[in-house]
Amino acid sequence: MANFRRFQPNDLNKISKCNLDPLTETYDLSFYLQYYAKWPTMFQVAEGQDGNIIGYIMGKVESSPDVYQFSEHYLPWHAHITVLTVAPEARRSGIGKILTEQLEAAADAHDAWFIDLFVRKSNHKAITFYKKLGYSVFRVVKDYYGGHASDPTATSEDAYDMRKPMRRDKEKKHVREDGETFEVDPADVW
């Protein structure tokens, strides 16, 4: 059984089980603390009985900079899932779903139009998970995940920009049916 609550800074000492997953993006300390300071309702954890963090979701609310308001790629006020991860031993127990639902409730409380996230096109399990929760592919971001200079064999990979409309978007203006056929460059994503 997990306890769901807001992230606290001392949780950084307890998230290693989650961050060992090769598909989980990890960040430096200041990045986590920035999210905690700016968007505390969008940073939730699942704590196991032993006190370790067995899952967490980190998100934010934002819009594109005003200078891009007339661009076809402009994003209005929306929520974004930066990280969702669950420790391997706690997967398939509903933790990811609960964490996502908590972030969706916070997005509605912030009056967001939609929630978006980026996922590797090859991460079929995550794509299936998000589709079951009502997310759909809005567009393909070409070469979003770049290769690493330290590894000459590493290749870049496309990302799906997936979205789910929130309560505010009654007319579903910010989702599309044919997202897999709509490609953009990483420079078009803010």
Rank of each mutant, 00 (worst) to 15 (best):
P40T: 14
T41A: 12
T41R: 13
T41D: 15
M42S: 13
F43L: 11
Q44A: 08
Q44W: 13
Q44N: 15
V45T: 12
A46I: 09
A46V: 11
A46H: 10
A46K: 09
A46N: 13
A46T: 12
E47T: 11
E47K: 09
E47L: 03
E47Q: 13
G48H: 14
G48V: 08
G48Y: 09
G48M: 06
Q49I: 14
Q49T: 15
N52G: 05
N52M: 10
I53S: 04
I54A: 00
I54Y: 03
G55S: 02
Y56P: 00
M58E: 00
G59Y: 05
G59W: 06
G59P: 00
K60A: 04
K60C: 08
K60Y: 05
E62R: 02
E62F: 05
E62L: 06
E62N: 05
S63V: 00
S63N: 07
S64W: 02
P65D: 08
P65M: 00
P65C: 04
P65Y: 06
D66V: 01
D66F: 03
V67G: 03
Y68F: 13
Y68K: 00
Y68C: 04
Q69S: 07
Q69H: 07
Q69Y: 08
F70P: 02
F70M: 12
S71I: 11
S71Q: 14
E72H: 11
E72S: 15
H73L: 01
L75C: 10
L75W: 01
